[in-house]
């Protein structure tokens, strides 16, 4: 499966944030999306998720030589500030989600199994989400996105504010989830990107570009990425 972006452009005022981007992401990979502050990573995600109307551009899912435009269910989006319906308990949210997506969920399991998968302990499962901590809300958001198993999973700085244990759990989880889908992971933390991601893509001056690892070790690769981000700046 492929996720294809064609001719994506977005301007704010006179500032061209995304410049006619053409890019193809391949399933089975976690893409680390790096970019300077204000480079437009979130804008890119918002366009893909159709929260923001792009000036031009289309998104396709390609499979076996045919392709079709993306639909909302293709895309999962986990934001850095987790958003969950605060008036529901974790179990109620999950129940609602499962009920209305019954047909599309693969291998439906009992709700408690899902909570166990996320290490959400029994006493927390029936608490209102408004009383959840940041990290717990994040887990719920991730869980919903994982069960929905979208073809494309967008993650916007999702691990930065989690404690080390939860962050590690999430990383493991993401690695297990990557088969058959495209995961794009935006972050400012280079080490995280190198540790978790299979490919590094940089967004600079409105363009997407793969930085090839070749046979560099992590240190050299890091320098290369930074170089690429810098060079772009002077280009």
């Amino acid at each position: 499966m492929e996720f294809i972006i064609e001719n994506l452009s977005k301007k704010f005022g006179t500032k061209e944030v995304l410049k006619q981007i053409d890019f193809t992401f391949e399933s089975g990979n976690i893409y680390g999306l790096l970019g300077r502050n204000g480079a437009g990573k979130t804008t890119l995600f918002n366009c893909v998720n159709r929260d923001l109307k792009a000036d031009s551009g289309s998104f396709f899912i390609g499979e076996n030589g045919t392709r079709r435009p993306t639909v909302p269910e293709d895309i999962g989006y986990v934001l850095s500030t987790p958003t969950v319906p605060e008036f529901l308990t974790a179990r109620e949210f999950l129940k609602f989600f499962v009920e209305i997506n019954e047909k599309s969920i693969r291998e439906l399991r009992p709700l408690d199994e899902y909570f166990e998968m996320m290490n959400i302990v029994p006493e927390d499962r029936d608490r209102l989400l408004k009383d959840y901590s940041h990290g717990m809300k994040n887990k719920m958001q991730m869980l919903i996105n994982i069960i929905a198993s979208p073809n494309i999973l967008l993650l916007d700085e999702p691990l930065t504010s989690l404690d080390v244990v939860v962050a590690e759990e999430m990383k493991q989880l993401l690695r297990r989830q990557k088969d058959g889908r495209v995961i794009i992971f935006s972050t400012h933390i280079m080490e995280l990107a190198l540790d978790l991601c299979d490919k590094i893509v940089i967004l600079n001056h409105g363009e997407l570009e793969v930085v090839d690892k070749e046979n560099l070790d992590n240190g050299e690769f890091k320098d290369k990425i930074i170089q690429a981000l810098r060079e772009e700046e002077h280009a």
Binding site: N49, R50, D51, P72, E73, D74, I75, G76, Y77, L79, T83, V84, P85, E86, F87, F97, I100, N101, Q141, I144, N145, A148, P150
Partner: peptide, 13 residues
């Protein structure tokens, strides 16, 4: 209290 968070989920849209 509701749509603000729910609208970030694809299935809800």
């Amino acid at each position: 209290n509701c749509d603000h968070s729910m609208l970030t989920y694809g299935f809800y849209k």
